[in-house]
Design a protein around this nucleic acid. Structure first.
Length: 550
RNA sequence: GACUCGUUGGUGAAGUGGUUUAACACGCUGCCCUCUCAAGGCAGUAUUCACGGGUUCGAAACCCGUACGAGUUACCA
């Protein structure tokens, strides 16, 4: 009995060899330094911001180098899989303009290196495992969970490293005969890798972010194939897939760093060259005193759906993430406002390798405000409208009842050198402009009058203004002149400088008069330019709103 | 517990032995401008790079300890 017999017993139907697959998946025909990268999420139904960030790096590297960015569905853990998960992932990628070059979705396989769904790649994995068994680098393990748990407990108690290695790897020394016997008897088993490493020996590993790392060799006989569904574990799928799909750069979170020794040894055992690795810092979250890994359970902002639902512009999210990735991105982008993030000279080495970055929502908000403020009204209108179709009926209705009117509102103090920054997200638009819509305005009943609160005085101001001073034909200067005339007539101070120097000498100032008009019109004391609002509202509606006060 | 990676202001960070009296951006504070708010302008916001030693003419940068943080330690990825 030989390893060959064992391999054939376990995988009787696997006839293809590694050489066959090498032929089936030949090297890609790309120019010399082209990067082949992949986004390889597990289909949990969410796209985590950390994974998305990795995908962004993948995308940038592939596109900049004229390479390939592909999507691979890592569904080897069937218990975590969720319906529609791939659809959600594709939606997110498309929303952010990161269409993969190769993928398998909706029954279509795009690309020559598929299947791109791991559960459909069983045969390839099995062929790989069969190969490892034949060369003596993998073996069946019949240890039960209870035994393993017990073992780990003992190891911990004795302050040993935990795991299946060295003398703890009991099944590693089982004879082929015995293994065959057990398999024939129907005893469940996993396949483990037979490590040749020595934990006390070290080796250099070159991470593109951190540089050279001095790591201990792997000596763990890790599980490479699970017992229940015969699918590989992540570690083995990674080796097979990234080899045959010819991935050149693997971008993943630093939580994978402790596994690289395993991966390197696995690649060696297969006789292959490992890809380059980029281990990105984790995205952390400030939680009271401590920083912790951002989690989808506790932190809504951990998921990309959050940014989509809130209506952050695509560019804003990309910019915020790029800024974390390479902090010189922002400077570069302000210097090159018309360039796309794909023109940016991304460098893995420039990524911070420090413990992890806090994703700063305030910074995102600032970026978002700036980006929205720089859109012309047509662009904002298009973006907001598109967004509202899936995420906001309120906004959609406002836009649809009169698109032109909507554009005029959002165009107040826009399309100029220093545009207003009122809108943080698309979702924030309705609240900023609701008073410009009569039906919504009717529902607003808390008037934020500031200094002048006397009802009679308010009535006098409004009535006098609309009857004696307001003229729709006035240009802005004339309009403000008249406001000043009104101010003087009612005994207030029209000159702010004079007023500030001696506020006691007056009933109030032109600011107070303007505020009364503004609040009566909008209920709010803080709004964009009053002149523009008046023009858009028109005399009839102004009068109607004023009349509530007299 | 063991192993790994880290530690520069409130935040993201620049910085790899001497034009750094620590860049830039966000935030915060004050002033100016101003019909409000926002924007904008100006100024301030780490005498110091977790701590303790060392190397050096010179260190945030190199070395050694300590402390702290995070990650891993699954038939999850």
């Amino acid at each position: 009995m030989t390893n060959h017999d064992l391999a054939n017993l376990i995988f009787p139907n696997i006839t293809k060899t590694m050489e066959d697959y090498e032929k089936e998946y030949p090297a890609r025909n790309l120019k010399e330094n082209a990067c082949v990268t992949r986004f390889a999420p597990s289909p949990t139904g969410f796209v985590h911001i950390g994974n998305f960030q990795a995908a962004l790096i993948d995308f940038v590297m592939a596109k900049k180098s004229g390479g390939v960015f592909y999507l691979r569905n890592e569904d080897t853990d069937k218990s975590r899989e969720v319906d529609q998960a791939v659809e959600i992932i594709m939606q997110v990628l498309r929303y952010y303009g990161m269409e993969p070059d190769e993928y398998e979705y909706d029954g279509k396989v795009i690309g020559n290196y598929g299947p791109y769904i791991q559960s459909e790649r069983k045969e390839i994995y099995h062929a790989g495992i069969k190969h490892l068994i034949e060369i003596g680098r993998a073996y069946p393990c019949f240890c039960e969970k209870e035994h393993l748990d017990q073992m780990r407990e003992n190891q911990e108690k004795n302050k040993m490293r935990t795991g299946y290695y060295g003398r703890y790897a009991t099944c590693r020394n089982m004879s082929v005969e015995e293994a065959i016997e057990k398999i024939k008897a129907g005893i469940p088993y996993v396949i483990r890798f037979r490590s040749n490493g020595n934990f006390d020996d070290r080796f250099w590993f070159d991470d593109l972010v951190r540089g050279k790392l001095y790591l201990n060799q792997n000596d763990q006989d890790i599980v490479i194939m699970k017992s229940d569904n015969l699918l590989p574990t992540y570690h083995f799928a990674h080796i097979i897939d990234d080899h045959f799909m010819h991935t050149t750069h693997v971008v993943r979170g630093e939580e994978w760093l402790p596994s690289v020794a395993v991966h390197i040894e696995l690649f060696e055992a297969m006789g292959w060259t490992p890809p380059k690795y980029i281990h990105t810092p984790l995205i952390l979250k400030q939680d009271g005193e401590i920083k912790r890994k951002i989690s989808k359970r506790k932190d809504p902002e951990a998921l990309m759906s959050y940014y989509m639902e809130k209506g952050y512009p695509v560019e804003a999210v990309i910019e915020a993430l790029m800024t974390i990735i390479n902090s010189n991105y922002e400077e570069w982008h302000t210097a090159n406002p018309d360039k796309s993030f794909l023109d940016f000279d991304f460098q893995a080495k420039k990524m911070s390798s420090s413990g992890g970055a806090l994703f700063d929502l305030e910074k995102l908000n600032n970026i978002s405000k700036n980006i929205i403020s720089k859109m012309d009204k047509e662009t904002l209108y298009q973006n907001a409208y598109e967004w509202s179709k899936t995420y906001s009926d309120v906004l959609k209705n406002l836009i649809e009842q009169d698109p032109e009117y909507f554009k005029q509102i959002i165009n107040i103090e826009r399309e100029q050198k220093k545009p207003r920054k009122d809108y943080e997200t698309y979702a924030s638009i309705p609240n900023e402009i609701c008073y410009m819509y009569d039906d919504l305005f009717e529902k607003m009943d808390t008037y934020d009058f500031q200094k002048i609160t006397d009802k009679n005085e308010i009535a006098t101001i409004l009535k006098t203004y609309i009857e004696d001073y307001y003229d729709e034909q006035d240009d802005k200067d004339t309009w403000f002149q008249k406001i000043k005339e009104l101010t003087t007539k009612l005994g207030y101070c029209a000159d702010m400088k004079a007023y500030k120097e001696n506020p006691e000498a007056y009933k109030g100032s032109v600011a107070d008069i303007s505020t009364v008009i503004r609040v009566a019109l909008t209920t709010r004391s803080m709004t964009p330019d009053l002149y523009e609002l008046l023009r858009l509202l028109g005399k009839e509606r102004i009068e109607k709103r004023f009349k509530k006060f007299y």
